[in-house]
Write a protein that binds this DNA or RNA. Structure first.
Lengths: 332, 332
DNA sequence: CTGAAAGCGCTTACAG
DNA sequence: CTGAAAGCGCTTACAG
């Protein structure tokens, strides 16, 4: 491949001048410009990004860590991120952690070697103390996540309020015994969804029964067996709230398999408004999140971090709006 | 951040020696090794990948172009790719083209500037002549795609045979009038699926009716309206084959909306074995593809291209096996 | 076993 | 308007 020196020689100028042409510097003679341009053309020259990166000390790369891209939530998030990144001249490195803490750390360490300019973290599986040391190498932001009193900027929804809203809807529909199938509880957003669920029960003077609060691991199968257990119990719940739609669908299928009618026997609701929720019959009531926007906003936030001191960024925690979508699975 | 010179100074050696330690060269004195290691530790030194890349003339990056990651087919493909890439020390740049030809070219041009070492292409939307000039910059391979008589290695299934197999299954189930809802026909695999469908009809002496061969654009909604049209016609088909499961699900829902029983009134089959196919009732008959393996094999193929002349690679076109999964949507 | 030097391909003060 | 020089942070023949 041709280098800047080849172009300079052919055009009979210094490589400084070629660089000026490449970077659209205004201080170039018209005739020189023409010569350089034609040399570039003739040699089919393209500047090397590797050299530019070293010189400018930036990679133009953003690492995005997700547990699993087959989950429509994360693929939607990535789509929002990718669009904004591309527009800003950045590329995204896809880091699938599979929820594995070691793999997560392995990817985070990319910033040490300056393989990327910044990192976006989702569904963090390591203690935040493991992450903060890496902040000195470059900016790190959260999507769909946040930590109490930490210095890491974030974009997310108010999970407590959202869970409270959907639980309240079930209560308003007449349910008094509502089960909750949560995702992994060490994930902050799951912790908060549970908080919102509990809050709604308490606000309405309903008893909390730990036996009908379960961990569905965010998976359809696991949630299905949770549902199975819930309905074979002596006093079965009349409604089941799941922390995402994938699990809600698992619940619906398990209940239908066991001969229960939805919503007549048991109402069901989920989170995310993912495509499954409208493929299954009955369609599942859910909390819609602005997923694409969340992805887009997170990249904007990271880009801001590239040029602004973290303390000066306002707001450092962005909260996006959610919307309750009432569908047949919870309608009497 | 500390550089190799800082380490060299602190350890009292040359940067050559530090580099040797970094790269585990055997020719280093034990005591020197100790000094260098402790200096590295003390300075919290990590070598810069930007500098290494420039020096070694490689980026450790692979660009993967996909039209849409919300499609489980492509997210599964990416998972297979990501795993193999990571193991081999490569990272993946996520390039979502949205099926946009300009955007596709924009991403392909990354290889000109040596932003990536190689490219994996799926669902190509540009003429192959647009691509071949870029082969001189670095290797390009296809996943789930192939082109007649071109020099680009590929990993895919035999789409003609697969479509023939599922069509034959419908014929064997007694259907004589089978509609086909295809994806965009300029995509090679769609062209071939149609070929397989036609072949099965011909082999069985069945008439081909162009009116019941439609373009569903790979989308659920579009396929649903295709189905709507098909069943409101005078002589409606007794079976509908869709080129992917997302469309098959659209067909099922549209038919059910119109009061048709599946499979009693109309049988349905799809492609991919995607999660939708088992969420909907009845579960949809489909052709299972080894998606994860396809992703993994494609990266292996690309890695081979990094070290081997393209003409010497055997086999240059890899064909993976498929399997027919007969489910209730096509069972009488 | 170790180091000086060249070089990967750019950009950017600095000087003219 | 243009160029010589330094430098981004590494690795790798080459020499000793």
């Amino acid at each position: 491949m041709a280098t800047i020196m080849d172009v300079a020689r052919l055009a009979g100028v210094s490589r400084t001048t070629v660089s000026r042409v490449l970077n659209n510097s205004p201080r170039v003679d018209k005739e020189t410009l023409r010569k350089v341009r034609s040399a570039i053309q003739e040699l089919n020259y393209e500047p090397s990004d590797m050299a530019r990166n070293l010189r400018k000390q930036k990679t133009g790369l953003i690492a995005v860590l997700v547990p699993d891209i087959s989950n429509p939530f994360f693929s939607g998030l990535l789509e929002g991120m990718e669009n904004v990144a591309l527009e800003a001249g950045y590329k995204i490195i896809l880091c699938i952690t599979g929820g594995n803490p070691e793999r997560e750390m392995q990817y985070i360490r990319m910033i040490e070697n300056k393989q990327v300019d910044g990192i976006i973290l989702t569904a963090l599986r390591n203690p935040v103390d493991f992450i903060t040391p890496y902040l000195r190498y470059g900016p790190i932001v959260f999507a769909n996540e946040y930590l109490d009193g930490d210095p890491i900027p974030s974009v997310a929804i108010d999970n407590t309020a959202a869970a409270q809203m959907v639980t309240q809807h079930l209560i308003d529909s007449g349910h008094r015994r509502i089960a909750f199938i949560n995702g992994p509880e060490h994930i902050i957003i799951c912790r908060d969804r549970k908080l919102g669920y509990l809050k709604a029960l308490q606000d309405n003077g309903l008893a909390v029964d730990q036996h009908i609060i379960m961990d569905g691991e965010y998976k359809m199968d696991t949630a299905a067996s949770c549902a199975q257990q819930l309905v074979t119990r002596s006093s079965r719940p009349t409604a089941i709230l799941a922390a995402n739609d994938t699990m809600a669908v698992g619940v619906v299928k398990a209940l239908q398999c066991n001969g229960f009618q939805i919503p007549e026997d048991v109402a069901v609701a989920g989170f995310d408004n993912n495509p499954f929720s409208t493929v299954i019959e009955p369609n599942v009531t859910t909390v819609e999140q602005p997923i694409y926007t969340m992805g887009a906003e997170t990249v904007h936030l990271l880009l801001t971090c590239f040029t602004t001191e973290i303390q000066k960024i306002e707001p450092r925690r962005r909260i996006l709006e959610t919307r309750l979508l009432v569908r047949r699975s919870s309608t009497r």
